[in-house]
Nucleic acid binder design. Structure first.
Length: 1124
RNA sequence: GGGCUUGUAGCUCAGGUGGUUAGAGCGCUACACUGAUAAUGUAGAGGUCCGUGGUUCGAGUCCACGCAAGCCCA
């Protein structure tokens, strides 16, 4: 049994599976938490996914991101509890159930009871839990799946009720209006989701009016405002302009009444309203009925000049009159000059923007009192004008002798064709048309035309929707706006811009949180009210509910508690059956609304522990979260609700660090969709490539907050380049460590200071790597961390350290040098296994276990280790710099050899390196042996000034000169470029040089220029990285012979391999005489023998059974025999 | 319509505080190396740094206005 298992081929998915079962078998996850009992906690909150759909590849991204920091912090010594969770309420569940049952919302309570419906929802919502759990395990996301929080649990809901009651007691819950899409035909509000159904937005031709609002105190001056919904004009209570837009007053005539008038509109819109052909016509020449209507711009304004101007109400209906500041011009930041007049008519009841703008400006809307004394809009819920407007319109129809397809009474004015009347009837007139005719006749319409635009329709009734004020329960988040903004600034957002921009701006423009949803499957609002709304009660716990129920039963409002003999279920319909008793003995009924599911998830810090009813100590130790992560689409969802609840009720942030990750798109940058077939199945990917490369790819390819264009080739590349190289390195180590029976023993290892330069260098690099990974991870930057690890592994460890140290592993018996090499490489691999374990938990643990199989002093898993802290004393900057020089110089020599067509096997006498400082020389000398071996040269000569053969060049140091000379810099630079050796040596000798600059003297110092040596006359020279190297290309006989000897060694090695000989097998070599080779073979006989494990090498006249090998310029006949 | 993000080589990405010749990996081509060998090295080709204007002695980098893609919100 070998100490370090060797692998011909690595099965990455297999590693994932075997390590996963190892973890399960040994309870590693649990131990990683128990290990840290009593240590400082690091708190992570899991944003609950919904299990009613299957998980996709983007969930791998999100869950990996959550996992890595928890693992990292565990290694660092924190105790990291991670409770899983499930989001179970909400519209998607309802829609899925309805689809499966073939029913609609209207059928609930008729074809199917609420009880049955909700039971169905409860079953459906966890349908894919198994798949989710499987994915979670397979990608190595460590989270407690056995005891998750579930948002439909009675205990969970009880915690929510507690929070709601706190809000209620603080007077932060209220009932109010909001403008929502509403379908009069269906009698219901529509969610934005429903509005986004395909086919909802349709192009329709509506009557549009540019109405004239007469400016107060003038005879014939008007504001022009355009609308595609003329029926909202009776509800107008203000006009909005853009403060920075340009407006003009135009003198002209009304095209319907021919009256002279002046009208104000945006300058940019004049050409749309007036025919340029009429621009030159004189106003005085106009005659009533002329086609071309002359016009003249008589004044110009900025939008802000118009603010506060008053105008007369468009429809003089006495009951709709409003006090100031109604009917004034206000500012609207959304006003544009894309269409219309650049002046926007506002009707508070029928537009969300209108509502918001008017509220902000304290301008009342047009409402009337209903029979209960409540304010209602002048259009009722059937989409029909109330008689207050209807009778006015009916009167005006008579007054203006307007006839239509039917007689209109006060109760007949539907604002859209909700009665399905025949629009093809030539006499058909919609309310909009009737309004238009009235306005035209009254000289209040500047233009009326059909306008085609996209307008939303109800997906059930196909009828146009209205924007309409509906009652809702709100949380008064605006009352805490300043606090929300202030505390947000203490949160570390990744990326920062999401915190300041997307989230910060959202907080700055905060509106109250609309909590109500008119649905069935969700957390019920725990509010009961008397029928007249005079008394309201909010229930904050099950105990309180039961106590109140008892009162209701005692009063006789209920025969018995709906929960008698049953487990408590706080869902509908049970809570709806509860009737409470008011202080005056009246019946109280529950407000039928459910609450926004975002409140469910935002309450998870509390509800996951059933706080405050249980687990107060756990809650306190794990609040607020140190870290959360979720998709950027959650910014106004989960991130906000967590923040809002924490700030309003706990006066602190809910999370200190947050990563908002981007989307996972397909490789072409398109959104993945099952329908289009470009969605990547995570299970297939895992099966083919294993979890580690997948995770690594997602983290290292791009910052997680950028969108990821998922390309499976990228996963393969990570696997080849990073995991493959690391695996090669391990295999190399294992191969020789087994042969030498190397065992790492921490107590007998060679002190780093005693190890060779190369070892101290890679160990220095390793310490720097540890620090870089720590720094990156402490800043929640996984991409930097993974890239640093990858760079170290591939470029430093494998392609430099192992390559240069190779011979030390295979040459001779165990000695101190060899042991140092083993120990160094072992330490690098061990540290890597820990550094990478957060990102590639399976492979890292597998590597760790391969390295520690026979070590009793190491835990059963890398995930149970303590962080290998960097030893800064081992960091040697000067050595790192030396090695960088060695790498650069080697690279230059390689490139020179290529240019001169001198292959590396051909030894060369020397290279020359010009050194301008003693320090550089020393640094190169430290690594001289490495360079010589790497590029196969005998010696390095350093040349300095005293040699007299250096040719130096000089160039301006722009960064420095720019600051000193500013605009004159170009003149200075031009002078410097003209310098010859004289000026260079002068500034080097004296440290400064005085130049003439436009007649004035200026002093340049050595720092103002960059002096380098880039040429040695007569030599083959290459220069880069600030280093110059010259190669001695002279081939002496001896060098040529050595070259031949080396070539021959190579050929013999190949023959050995072809013959299938083992590394330690001995051979005998016969070579047939050849003029070109004889001297080389004689002089380098012992070298050849040592290298090829030959006991003897003889030159003979004729070789029997020979093989012919191709040398560079000739052929040799050779025979090789195995000895013994 | 608003807010935010992204735009650099065929592809994926780096490019503190502005500095004159814009880099890496993959891919491609050629050559080399050969006891890590399905590995590795070197070189080459490949760029209107999304566009337009501006600030500056100097702009991939700063500013303004656009364009394209994406997310969220109306």
């Amino acid at each position: 049994m070998k100490r370090y298992q060797e692998y011909k081929q690595v099965d990455y998915p297999g590693i994932g599976e075997s390590i996963l079962s190892y973890w399960k078998q040994h309870d590693i996850f649990k131990k990683s938490i128990e290990n840290r009992a009593g240590q400082e906690t690091f708190t992570f909150f899991e944003g609950p996914p919904s299990a009613n759909g299957t998980p996709g590849i983007h969930h791998v991204m999100a869950r990996t991101l959550k996992d890595i920091f928890c693992r990292y912090k565990t290694l660092k010594g924190f105790q990291v509890k991670r409770k899983g969770g499930w989001d179970t309420h909400g519209l998607p569940v309802e829609l899925q159930v309805e689809k499966e049952l073939g029913i609609t919302k209207e059928d609930i309570g008729k074809k199917i009871s609420v009880e049955e419906y909700n039971r169905k929802c409860r079953e459906t919502v966890m349908r894919f839990k198994d798949q989710w759990d499987e994915l979670t395990e397979k990608i190595g996301y460590w989270v407690d799946l056995e005891d998750p929080y579930i948002t439909f649990d009675a205990k969970y809901i009880e915690s929510l009720w507690h929070l709601l009651k706190q809000l209620f007691d603080k007077d932060l819950l209220y009932k109010g209006y909001t403008i929502q899409p509403y379908s009069p035909a269906a009698g219901t509000g529509l969610s934005s989701h429903e509005l986004n159904q395909p086919g909802c937005y349709r192009d329709v031709k509506d009557t549009s009016i540019t109405a004239q609002f007469k400016i107060k105190g003038t005879d014939n001056e008007y504001f022009a405002a355009w609308t595609t919904t003329p029926w909202t004009l009776p509800s107008n209570s203000a006009l909005a302009v853009g403060e920075n837009l340009d407006y003009v007053k135009v003198k002209t005539f009304n095209q319907y009444t021919y009256e002279p008038m002046q009208i104000i509109m945006a300058k940019a819109r004049v050409n749309s309203y007036f025919n340029p052909k009429a621009a030159d016509l004189a106003l005085a020449d106009y005659k009533a009925g002329d086609k071309l209507i002359p016009y003249e711009i008589v004044a110009e304004y900025k939008g802000k000049d118009l603010l506060g101007m008053q105008y007369e109400q468009l429809f003089p209906i006495a009951d709709l009159a409003l006090p100031a500041p109604a009917f004034t011009v206000i500012s609207g930041d959304y006003v544009t000059t894309e269409d219309g007049t650049g002046i926007v008519h506002l009707a508070k009841a029928f537009g969300a923007d209108d509502f918001r703008t008017l509220v902000q400006n304290n301008i009342p809307g047009v409402f009337v009192k209903d029979e209960n004394g409540q304010d209602v809009p002048v259009v009722d819920k059937q989409g029909k004008f109330l008689p207050v407007v209807g009778s006015y319109l009916a009167e005006q129809m008579k007054a203006h002798q307007i006839t239509a397809h039917k007689d209109f009474g006060p109760d007949d004015f539907y604002v859209k064709n909700y009665l399905d009347e025949n629009e093809n009837d030539p006499e058909y007139k919609s309310t909009d048309v009737i309004i238009s005719i009235i306005l035209k006749n009254e000289n209040k319409a500047f233009r009326v035309e059909k306008y085609e635009h996209s307008y939303p329709h109800c997906w059930r009734t196909d009828k146009p929707i209205l924007y309409y004020p509906l009652e809702s329960w709100f949380i008064k988040t605006t009352a805490y706006k300043d606090k929300l903004v202030a505390l947000n600034k203490t949160i570390n957002w990744k990326p920062e811009s999401t915190g300041t921009g997307r989230f910060g701006n959202w907080l700055e423009n905060l509106v109250d949180w609309n909590l109500s949803r008119s649905r069935f499957w969700g957390t019920p609002l725990p509010i009961w009210r008397t029928e007249d709304g005079s008394e309201t009660k909010c229930i904050g716990s099950v105990a309180e509910l039961e106590a109140e129920i008892a009162k209701g039963v005692a009063k006789g409002f209920m025969k018995a508690s709906p929960y008698q003999g049953k487990e408590i279920d706080l869902h509908r319909p049970y809570v709806d059956d509860v009737i409470l008793v008011s202080s005056t003995g009246e019946k109280m009924f529950r407000e039928p609304d459910l609450i926004d599911v975002w409140f469910d998830s935002g309450a998870m810090p509390y509800a996951q522990w059933h706080y405050p009813f249980e687990n107060q100590d756990i809650f306190k130790a794990n609040y607020p979260a140190d870290y959360i992560a979720e998709g950027v689409d959650q910014t106004r969802g989960w991130f906000f609700t967590l923040h809002a609840i924490a700030v309003m009720l706990f006066d602190q942030v809910a999370f200190k660090n947050v990563i908002a990750n981007g989307l996972v798109l397909d490789k072409n940058g398109n959104k993945m969709s099952k329908r289009l077939g470009n969605a990547v199945d995570p299970f297939v990917t895992l099966k083919e490539h294993g979890p580690d490369a997948l995770r690594w790819y997602m983290l290292s390819n791009a910052n997680p907050w950028d969108n990821l264009k998922f390309n499976i080739e990228g996963v393969q590349e990570v696997q080849r380049r990073f995991f493959g190289t690391l695996q090669n390195t391990y295999n190399f180590f294992a191969l020789y460590a087994n042969l030498d029976d190397f065992a790492y023993s921490p107590n007998q290892k060679i002190a780093v200071a005693q190890r060779p330069e190369l070892d101290r260098w890679i160990i220095s690099k390793l310490q720097s790597l540890i620090i870089e990974v720590e720094t990156a991870m402490d800043q929640y930057d996984a991409t930097r961390a993974t890239r640093a690890i990858m760079n170290f592994t591939v470029d430093q460890l494998s392609n430099w350290y192992v390559r240069l140290a190779r011979k030390r592993f295979w040459r001779g018996e165990m000695n101190a040098d060899k042991q140092a090499a083993y120990e160094t490489l072992y330490e690098c691999l061990m540290t890597l296994s820990q550094l990478m374990s957060s990102f590639a938990p399976f492979y890292a643990d597998w590597l760790f276990q391969n390295l520690t199989k026979e070590r009793k002093d190491q835990p059963a898993s890398v995930h149970l280790t303590d962080w290998f802290a960097a030893d800064t004393a081992l960091i040697n900057d000067s050595l790192e710099h030396s090695m960088q020089l060695a790498q650069d110089i080697s690279s230059l020599v390689h490139s020179l050899r290529k240019k001169e067509k001198l292959k590396v096997r051909q030894p060369l006498q020397k290279i020359l390196i010009p050194v301008l400082s003693e320090q550089t020389k020393t640094q190169i000398q430290h690594v001289e042996e490495l360079i010589k071996a790497e590029v196969n040269i005998k010696a390095i000569d350093y040349i300095d000034d005293t040699s007299g053969i250096l040719v130096k060049s000089v160039k301006p140091n722009f960064a420095k000169l720019g600051k000193e000379f500013g605009p004159k810099m170009k003149l200075v630079a031009a002078q410097i470029n003209q310098w010859t050796a004289t000026e260079i040596s002068e500034i080097e000798r004296t440290g400064q040089l005085i130049i003439e600059l436009e007649g004035e003297k200026a002093t340049l110092t050595k720092e103002d220029v960059i002096i380098s040596s880039q040429d040695i006359p007569g030599w083959s020279v290459a220069s880069d990285y600030g280093v110059t190297v010259a190669l001695d290309v002279t081939l002496t006989d001896e060098l040529k012979q050595e070259g031949i000897a080396r070539d021959l060694v190579n050929r013999i090695q190949n023959l050995r391999k072809d013959m299938g000989l083992d590394v330690q097998d001995k051979i005998k070599i016969q070579v047939q005489h050849h003029e070109a080779a004889d001297d080389a073979l004689t002089n380098f006989k012992s070298y050849i023998c040592v290298e090829t494990q030959a006991t003897d090498l003889v030159l003979v006249n004729q070789v029997n059974a020979s093989q012919v090998v191709e040398m560079d310029d000739f052929e040799l006949s050779i025979q090789i025999e195995k000895v013994g």
